[in-house]
Computed example of a mutant assay.
Amino acid sequence: MLRRVYVIQYRRTGEFLTQGLFYTRSLKKAGRLYDPQEAIDTAINNIDEGDYEIHSFFEGEEDAPLN
């Protein structure tokens, strides 16, 4: 089964925000959010000056990374 996920990327460094609110260069280790508003709120509250991008894609539930 596919589900839509959202990940947050810090534009300045290209790193992704993890589930624990740290940074990683690995998309596989990026934290997944499942609600677009939650992704926006998380980005606003954790990345300075709106310097972020939110990416959305579909992945199989079995493909979700283990955090």
Score class of each variant (00 low, 15 high):
Glu62Ile: 13
Asp48Thr: 05
Tyr52Ala: 06
Glu59Asp: 07
Phe16Asp: 01
Gln19Pro: 01
Glu49Ser: 14
Asp63Thr: 13
Ile54Lys: 04
Asp41Met: 09
Gly60Trp: 09
Tyr52Ser: 06
Thr18Arg: 11
Pro65Tyr: 07
Tyr6Gln: 05
Leu33Ala: 01
Ala30Val: 02
Glu49Pro: 00
Glu61Phe: 11
Leu2Asp: 14
Glu38Met: 12
Glu49Thr: 06
Thr18Gln: 09
Phe16Cys: 04
Glu15Tyr: 06
Asp63Met: 11
Gln19Met: 08
Arg3Ile: 12
Thr24Cys: 03
Arg3Gly: 07
Leu17Val: 13
Gly20His: 13
Thr42Asn: 05
Tyr23Val: 09
Asp35Phe: 10
Ser56Val: 03
Glu15Pro: 00
Asp41Gly: 01
Thr13Val: 07
Thr24His: 04
Asp35Ser: 15
Gly60Phe: 14
Asn67Lys: 12
Thr24Pro: 04
Lys29Tyr: 00
Phe16Glu: 02
Ile40Asn: 02
Ile54Ala: 03
Thr42Phe: 06
Ala39His: 10
Gln9Ile: 04
Pro65Ile: 08
Phe16Val: 03
Thr13Cys: 05
Arg32Val: 01
Thr13Asp: 08
Gln9Lys: 13
Ile40Ser: 05
Asp51Ala: 13
Tyr6Asn: 00
Phe58Val: 01
Ser56Trp: 10
Ile8Glu: 04
Glu59Tyr: 00
Gly50Glu: 04
Lys28Ala: 07
Tyr52Ile: 10
Leu27Gly: 07
Leu33Lys: 06
Ala64Ile: 15
Lys29Gly: 01
Gly31Met: 04
Glu62Met: 11
Ile8Val: 09
Ala43Leu: 13
Ile47Val: 13
Arg12Ser: 06
Lys29Met: 05
Ile54Glu: 04
